[in-house]
Write a protein that binds this DNA or RNA. Structure first.
Length: 580
RNA sequence: CGGGAUGUAGCGCAGCUUGGUAGCGCACAACGUUCGGGACGUUGGGGUCGCAGGUUCAAAUCCUGUCAUCCCGACCA
């Protein structure tokens, strides 16, 4: 490809609407163009990168025994009603109607479709196991698209689905995919960490997320990890707590005045007791129903855990208005900050559920709200003053410094970009959708399923997050849009142009993806563009050609060599061979 | 969906307070001088000032509505 013909426009400035580095760089270097919020055109350079990632994925998935197919993007409501997700999925499901008024949706994921396809074909245990995958655009109407390709609404995803006859087979395939994913990301030049995670709206039990570790805001997940193998997303992480005072040492149980002391911090100071002896009561709304969560004063609730503890799909903290309404309905007159579990029965048509975190179960002589504004109960004890709730679960958000649940050493925290995940679904879809086969005994059985996703576009963006400097992108060779750019310093100089052309032709005939920057621009412009676009190698043909040398630059480490043209060509050819 | 901000050429912005013939830099086209880290000069093309209504002799500017985009919170590849 000659640079003068390339459909690309680099910009001197970053677009003002970009926040994270991958978005800024990809937009400025001419890889992407936004059409509307969360929806981008992938320009030729971007498309080359995406195709490279896709092909690495295809290669590894095929090697792992999976088969590629392609399912429809537009899907009928009926299938989603079978699985129960037409109602459960929420606002991210982009719903639409056709001209006859039939309700459809744009595919955010394809469990329903693949299950309906499989159940018509996979009738016998002899046909199993099977793993099917596709690479396709998905649409999720994100509440808040942001960060360019990291969280678009329309994005490219590889999604795979496995069908097995037993849990053992599923676990084998899960490990198989784990290995394939490890290979894929490694080949893409990304260091990933597989962390335990919550299984969210997709459902199922066991799941892991593949995270690209980053210290920037682009990493939207908090990952807790240990020097042993343990690592988990914050929505799933568990920990052992450091020792703390859990006995409030209040000599008697009594109600005390705590005027305007609503926050835990203030309460701790006012009563001159540690936060660890206060039982905090938080009111949440889970799928419209009220849930009161009790947790030790110094700790925070992990909302996903709480939501799972009550089997919900959506969670938010209650508004102060809702809290006041709930108080009135139960005969109290208290505001947030003085709430307690005792005496809370109902709110509207729902019963109030009370969930205690494990941290509060062993509190003694503690402090707790009693639904009276400006008052708290001190010296409280479970079973004496207040009954311990029936449901005691771990709903606590882990903090760095807590101890690893597996080896006991302190946990560390970092940020991660989730580029892939693997789920053990079990019969979550096959059972309700009656997707069954006949086993060796002629008995009907639902498939044991797994699903495995990779965000292709997100992987590309994560690669930029992981590989860049102040001048631009530093693509790993395997996913770079081109391997090398050949830059004649002066297009006026016949000798330089001749050698540059020879190098270029030689690279092309060796199967290298090369670009010749034949534009009549000053050298500085070409160098800046080369750095910004992120060619892994640059061969500059300048004055030193009179001494028989070109300049060979490796973008990844900045190494510069003055070597003969043939050596430069050989180095690129060798590097390219290594990634194939 | 709540809270905050912004919409003027492909990109980055000024102009708006105090209404009066739409500007600057980059990019684009032409010519000339330059030519190893985003050169300079001259000339030129490109705009329903987000959209709709209103006030006014006159609206980018004032008023009302509306749409879009971005940032901060809850979800996920």
């Amino acid at each position: 490809m000659k640079m003068s013909n390339m459909f690309v426009q680099t910009m001197r400035e970053f677009p003002s609407d970009a926040e994270v580095i991958s978005h800024k760089m990809l937009a400025r270097a001419g890889y992407i163009k936004k059409l509307t919020s969360g929806v981008y055109t992938f320009l030729p350079l971007m498309w080359r990168v995406l195709k490279k990632i896709e092909n690495i994925i295809r290669d590894e998935m095929d090697k792992a025994g999976a088969q590629e197919l392609l399912m429809p993007f537009v899907q009928p409501k009926e299938l989603w009603e079978e699985s129960g997700r037409w109602n459960a999925y929420g606002g991210e499901l982009m719903r639409l109607k056709d001209r006859h008024g039939r309700e459809m949706c744009l595919g955010p994921t394809h469990e329903e479709i693949i299950t309906s396809v499989a159940r018509d074909i996979l009738k016998s245990y002899k046909q199993l196991p099977v793993n099917l995958y596709q690479i396709q655009s998905k649409f999720r109407d994100e509440r808040r698209p942001r960060f360019g390709l990291l969280r678009g609404r329309e994005f490219i995803m590889k999604d795979a689905y496995s069908f097995s006859t037993s849990q053992e087979d599923l676990e084998r395939e899960y490990q198989n995919m784990w290995q394939a994913y490890t290979n894929i990301f490694k080949r893409c030049g990304l260091d990933t960490k597989a962390v335990q995670s919550d299984s969210g709206a997709i459902g199922g039990s066991v799941s892991h997320e593949f995270m690209v570790i980053t210290d920037t805001d682009a990493g939207e997940n908090d990952v807790f990890y240990c020097e042993c193998d343990y690592s988990a997303n914050s929505n799933h992480a568990v920990s052992n707590l450091p020792d703390a005072v859990t006995d409030g040492s209040f000599s008697e149980s009594k109600i005390v005045d705590t005027p305007n002391v609503g926050s835990i911090e203030d309460l701790s100071k006012f009563l001159n007791c540690p936060q660890t002896v206060i039982c905090k009561s938080l009111v949440y709304i889970v799928d419209k129903a009220p849930v009161v969560a009790l947790i030790r004063g110094d700790r925070a609730v992990e909302e996903t855990k709480l939501m799972n503890a009550v089997g919900g799909l959506d969670i938010r903290i209650a508004t102060s208005g809702e809290i006041e309404e709930m108080m009135k309905e139960n005969g109290f007159d208290a505001v947030a900050g003085f709430i307690g579990p005792k005496g809370l029965k109902k709110y509207g048509e729902y019963e109030v559920k009370i969930i205690a975190d494990k941290t509060v179960a062993n509190l003694k002589n503690f402090v707790i709200g009693i639904n009276q504004t400006d008052k708290h109960l001190v010296g409280a004890n479970w079973g004496v003053d207040i009954e311990l709730p029936e449901i005691v679960e771990d709903i606590r958000l882990v903090e760095a410094g807590d101890f690893c649940p597996e080896c006991g050493k302190p946990l560390k925290v970092t940020r991660g970009i989730e580029v892939g995940n693997i789920f053990q679904l079990g019969t979550k879809y096959s059972a309700p959708m009656n997707a069954v086969y006949l086993d060796a005994n002629g008995k009907t059985q639902p498939y044991i399923m797994g699903c495995y996703g990779i965000g292709v576009t997100r992987t590309a963006a994560a690669a930029v997050e992981a590989h860049h400097d102040e001048w631009g992108i530093k693509w790993p060779l395997a996913i770079a849009p081109y391997h090398v750019v050949v830059v004649p310093v002066s297009t006026q100089d016949n000798e330089q142009m001749k050698v540059a052309n020879e190098i270029y032709e030689q690279l092309l005939s060796a199967g290298v993806e090369a670009v010749l920057d034949d534009r009549n621009e000053r050298a500085g412009v070409k160098f800046k563009d080369a750095d910004l676009i992120g060619f892994p190698f640059r061969i500059t043909v300048g004055k030193t050609i009179s001494e028989g040398n070109v300049e060979f630059v490796e973008r990844s480490n900045g190494e510069k060599l003055a070597i003969p043209p043939q050596d430069a060509v050989d180095k690129v050819v060798k590097a390219v061979k290594e990634i194939l």
